[in-house]
C-alpha cells in the first residue's frame, strides 16, 4: 500500500473543510464536541451536585461514566480524539481519595506519560486534559468545564489542526533526516 503525501494532505484538508460546515446545517456556528470520562464516585457526583445547585455551564460537554479514572484506557482517549471529539477530559478523585484505593494514582502516571506522548506526536496542548474533581467540588467541575470549553472553542475543530501543505512538505525532509540506517529498501 502506498499513501502519497498529496493524498494525506488532501484528506486532511477535506476533513478540515467538512468540519467548517457542521451537521447543524447552514448558519449554525460550529460547536465543540468534548467528551469527559468521569469517575462515578467523585467527578460524576460532583457534576450531579453542580446540577443540584443549578450551576450553569456550556452544553458542549458529554459525560461518560466510568467506575474509576483507572478504568479509562488511553485507547478510549485516542479513539475519541481520532473519531471526532475536539477535546477529551479525564476526571477522577483527588489522589488519596480514590474509592478504589489507588486507581487514580495509576491513572495519573498513565495519563501523564500518554498526554506527553500525544502532544509529542502533534496533538495541540489542551485538547486532552486530566483533572481531579471531588464529589463536593461542584464549583470546580463547573469552572473546569467552562475553561476547557473555552480553550477548545478557541482552538477550533480538531480537523483544523491538520498540518498545512508547507508543514507537510517540510516534514518529509525532517523525516528523511531522522531515518536511521534501517532496513528500508
Amino acid at each position: 500500500m502506498s499513501v502519497t503525501s498529496d493524498a494525506v494532505a488532501a484528506e486532511a484538508r477535506s476533513r478540515a473543510e467538512g468540519a467548517a460546515s457542521p451537521e447543524g446545517g447552514a448558519g449554525s456556528p460550529w460547536q465543540p464536541k468534548i467528551l469527559a470520562f468521569c469517575c462515578n464516585w467523585c467527578t460524576y457526583a460532583g457534576a450531579d451536585l453542580a446540577g443540584l445547585n443549578r450551576m450553569n455551564y456550556p452544553a458542549d460537554i458529554r459525560l461518560l461514566r466510568v467506575p474509576c479514572s483507572g478504568r479509562v484506557n488511553p485507547q478510549h482517549v485516542l479513539r475519541a480524539l481520532q473519531d471526532g471529539c475536539d477535546g477529551v477530559l479525564v476526571c477522577g478523585c483527588h489522589p488519596g481519595d480514590c474509592h478504589y484505593v489507588s486507581g487514580n494514582y495509576y491513572a495519573k502516571r498513565r495519563m501523564m506519560v500518554f498526554k506527553r506522548l500525544l502532544e509529542y506526536s502533534g496533538l495541540r496542548p489542551g485538547r486532552f486534559q486530566v483533572r481531579w474533581i471531588s464529589g463536593s467540588e461542584a464549583g470546580k467541575f463547573r469552572d473546569t468545564v467552562v475553561s476547557v470549553t473555552e480553550q477548545i472553542s478557541q482552538m477550533g475543530p480538531m480537523a483544523s489542526d491538520a498540518p498545512s501543505l508547507e508543514a507537510l512538505a517540510g516534514a518529509d525532509a525532517l523525516l528523511e533526516a531522522a531515518r536511521g540506517a534501517g532496513d528500508a529498501r
Binding site: V66, P67, C68, G70, R71, V72, N73, P74, Q75, H76, H99, Y100, S102, G103, Y106, R110
Partner: peptide, 20 residues
C-alpha cells in the same frame, strides 16, 4: 474498579458492566 483491564495490554481482562 477496572484498573486491571487497562493494565492488561492484550485486552484479556475486561470489566463487566463497563466493558471496553
Amino acid at each position: 474498579c477496572g484498573a486491571c483491564s487497562v493494565a492488561c495490554r492484550s485486552g484479556a481482562l475486561d470489566l463487566l458492566g463497563f466493558s471496553d
